[in-house]
Each structure stands twice: as C-alpha cells, then as structure tokens.
Amino acid sequence: MWGFNITKTRAIDFDKNNREPMMEILRLEPSIRVCIACGACTATCTSGNLTPFNIRQLNVFMQRGEYQELKKEMHKCMLCGKCTLVCPRGVNLRHLILKTREVLLNEEPLFAQN
C-alpha cells in the first residue's frame, strides 16, 4: 500500500531459516558433515540423472535450513545405495535420506510456506 512490493530475497537468509529440522537430521545421521561436495553421489544417481533430484545440492540446502526443494524431491530416491557406495568420505547417504524424510514429514506444520 506504500508502493513497495515485499519481494523475497534470493539470498539464503541463514538467520531467519529454521535450523531445528536440520539439527535433528544431522543428529540422526551425522556423517553428512564430512561431505566435500565432490558430486559422485549425484553422478551415479539414477533419479538424479532423470530429475532435478540432486542429492548433493539438496543436502547443502538442508544444512543451510532450506527445505522447499528437498521436500519436493526427496521421494524420488529409490534407496539403491549406489551413492553411498561411491562416496569417498563414507557418508551414509541412504540413511540420511530416510531420516530426512522422517524428520521433514513429521514436522510438516513447521515449514508451512508463508
């Protein structure tokens, strides 16, 4: 009404983001902390080659408190475990996805987009 449009910033608003689910996910599967973002997981991923499901990138978003994309894509994982097998850091991505689904589904109301 003042002639302004409240535009959402494109930046990751780290301080405003809800980091609780992320802390919970990291508690349930801490190995993602040692990820060096090499992308081998995404490269080998069948779903990742056919859809925007990029497990490496989504996990970066998750750790910054951004879940929208993750919530949209996380069910495309077939849990085949190739990502876990090629990971040079021994990250248990398969379990991570399971726990991410659990946490994000259980705490659904928390992320109701406003």
């Binding site: 779903s47 056919l50 859809t51 949209k72 894509e73 069910h75 495309k76 077939m78 399971l98 689904r101 659990e102 589904l105």
Partner: peptide, 16 residues
C-alpha cells in the same frame, strides 16, 4: 522399520 513412504506425494513416474 518405519515406512515413511506411505505418505509421500511424488512417485517414480519419471522412470522412462
């Protein structure tokens, strides 16, 4: 083992 897939929205429709 918890079946969290029961409530999912997406499916595997992307598989050719």
């Amino acid at each position: 083992r918890a079946d969290v897939s029961a409530t999912r929205e997406e499916n595997f429709g992307f598989i050719p």
